[in-house]
Design a protein around this nucleic acid. Structure first.
Length: 266
DNA sequence: CCTAATGTTTGTGC
DNA sequence: AGCACAAACATTAG
């Protein structure tokens, strides 16, 4: 579930509750979810430091600490990760990594244990952990989008999911944006006409803005995403049945009426 | 029992 | 090299 809007929600949680507070101690319940250092090493690096303004790039949350060359924590949520703020200072058993601060506890959980918290030593490049990341989807302008898709030979959906090209879009966001842009996910990425690029960029902005406001990709009656869990999903727009098939390795929903499949050549 | 699930990595093959 | 696909990762829900 966590895509860009969910990570942005977690970033705001940190900004509202944790920024400006000193780390008093760290508690590691699940060492497997702490990468790049040991529990003891994390304590040595962070205790006494103050949490500064959190940043986000794509689906990565970047926690920073004060000091000349303060260390960073890089947080990825994968399928089921999330951050929890404990005002009362109590941690739960499923809090894998917890930072005890002056007025509460910031805890990372990952139910299916796919995500993790990476310790990034001072002076280390972020890309060594995150791999190459394209521009954040929020900051991508229309020409940037054209650039990212233009030299791609493959399908539109797989291009939009490629974090090295555009950082932050996941399965739900991409299906939603393609549906609203009336573009079929199997279109060749480089085959879009200027007006199609305009529509894609405009819908991307609208969907991102609304999803960030909600803290997740909405699943209301006017959202394609609301049909994802339905046994017989229907197009919220035309009422016809949606197609559910595997595209770019992911379960994909699309409307056969509003998103015509590409013809020969893309 | 089996299958599928949000994301990413890795291996394989065209 | 670029891209697609499958499997793997760990766990739960159906």
């Amino acid at each position: 579930m966590p895509e860009l809007p969910d990570v942005e929600h977690h970033r705001r949680t940190v900004a509202e509750h944790a920024t400006g507070q000193r780390v008093e101690r760290v508690a590691i319940n699940d060492p497997a979810l702490l990468e790049g250092t040991s529990p003891q090493g994390l304590g040595r690096s962070l205790v006494g430091r103050t949490v500064t303004a959190p940043r986000r790039h794509g689906k990565w949350l970047i926690l920073e600490f004060d000091g000349e060359d303060g260390p960073h924590l890089l947080v990825h949520f994968r399928m089921t990760g999330r951050l929890v703020w404990h005002e009362d200072g109590e941690v739960a058993g499923d809090d894998a990594v917890a930072l005890h601060l002056e007025h509460g506890v910031l805890a990372y959980r990952s139910e299916r244990r796919l995500g993790a918290v990476w310790y990034l030593p001072p002076g280390t490049e972020r890309e060594e952990v995150t791999g190459p990341l394209g521009p954040d989807a929020v900051t991508l302008d229309r020409n940037g989008l054209a650039e990212v898709l233009g030299d791609r030979r493959g399908g539109l959906k797989s291009a939009l999911l490629d974090q090295a090209r555009i950082a932050g879009l996941g399965n739900e966001l991409v299906d939603e944006v393609l549906w609203r842009s009336r573009l079929h996910p199997r279109r060749r990425a480089a085959s879009l006409e200027p007006d199609e690029l305009d529509a894609l960029h405009q819908q991307l902005r609208i969907v991102l803005r609304r999803a960030i406001r909600a803290g997740h990709v909405p699943a209301g009656p006017t959202w394609l995403n609301g049909q994802r869990a339905e046994r017989e999903p229907r197009c919220p727009d035309c009422g016809g049945p949606l197609v559910r098939e595997r595209i770019a390795g992911r379960t994909t929903l699309w409307c056969p009426t509003e998103q015509p499949p590409p013809g020969v050549g893309g």
